[in-house]
Nucleic acid binder design. Sequence first.
DNA 1: CGTCATTGTCGTCACTTTGACGATAAGACC
DNA 2: GGTCTTATCGTCAAAGTGACGACAATGACG
Lengths: 227, 227
Amino acid sequence: MDFEPLGVAADLVILTVRDGSLQVLLIRRGIAPYRGRWALPGGFVRPKEDLEEAARRELQEETGLLSDRIHLEQVATYGEPGRDPRGRVISVTYLALVPDLPSPVAGTDAASAEWVTVDEVLTDQNRLAFDHHRILTDAVERARAKLEYSPLAAAFCPDEFTISELRGIYEAVWGVQLDPRNFHRKATKTDGFVIPLGATTTRDGGRPAQLFRRGPAATLHPPLTRG
Amino acid sequence: MDFEPLGVAADLVILTVRDGSLQVLLIRRGIAPYRGRWALPGGFVRPKEDLEEAARRELQEETGLLSDRIHLEQVATYGEPGRDPRGRVISVTYLALVPDLPSPVAGTDAASAEWVTVDEVLTDQNRLAFDHHRILTDAVERARAKLEYSPLAAAFCPDEFTISELRGIYEAVWGVQLDPRNFHRKATKTDGFVIPLGATTTRDGGRPAQLFRRGPAATLHPPLTRG
DNA sequence: CGTCATTGTCGTCACTTTGACGATAAGACC
DNA sequence: GGTCTTATCGTCAAAGTGACGACAATGACG
């Protein structure tokens, strides 16, 4: 069995919600091709390394996050010939959802890594290197869809969060305003979505809010609805 | 840039509904490894060939289907080292949904290809070669989930179909019984799901049924619900 | 300390959707 | 004509949804 020369890369769409907007972690390419352009973090899968393992390694290198507790999910694989001028490269793309990080970006490549608002990146077709514009589009669409029927939004939150903070995730990702009262009702009544901790916090100002943890549900019944 | 020796394969989970049950097209392997075992159809992606192009080529080779009109969608990529004893092979898996074919299997490998009930295959962990049990499990779960919020069920039907036939798809894929009256109401009222043709058929016996075509909707609002 | 602004949480109400099921329609077969 | 089968319409109670009023509990400010 002989193979054509070909590389397999694990690329990452790392999303977070900061200051009320959905943001993606980009790195500025220091070498050709696309030198100086922004790109999704990623790198080649090593021999004897599993795909997801490679993605977690890249995630840690870029963000310093202990990736055990980070939601990471495969989105799609791109392999069009010519998508990388260096040769045939198959890109397996993973979506990572991380809470708003205290330190901006603590990875090894910190100097050239930056959080950028997704809307801003997507309005310019040529902002990103390779076919990363398309990859980001697909990953964001996946994230938006999954918020409806999965408890994924909680992956953007710290361990303990308030219903308002959770609502803020939905509003940022979907780009809509949600009624606080109806959202509160649905989030707390949906089976296994959130678990009340008893404690409260006043970090959002106003009346103290209950703190919650993520619940055990894998899917939401009934789903949350967009708009 | 140098690469480790590595192959990329496009594997197919081809599903149909026959005789009221969800079935998958399997081929019997004629060569080692796993000689004599059942496996998902598939093959290596050629140089200069796009991933989906490879999948469509395999689909046509196996089923003889002009793949233009067939729903084909990427599901996931598997690349665990050791999943193929011959060497490192990355498998990009596609899900194809086809109507009940008049001719059983008309492809080149027809002699060794066969439709098998999904439930039967999945009850035996060792029926399939490689990690194809896992791949099939993932693909079927994807199909089941997508029926809820996408008009995908119509991809299992011929161009013209009755509401009962459509309901039969849901019942076979989900393995549940649905109320004909409520299903009829929801299917016909959901925006853009099906378009009435005016004509009727008596092929299902009983009162003549209206014929429909697939509508333009990309997602179903509201979604159909399982059970 | 009172007032106000802010956010959280509970309730209400009209409307829609859902699931269960009765009833009738329109063909085939005898 | 009966009877069987499947199609399709209608009804009704229960549950869910979106809009919004009301009140609670804090901090900020005078």
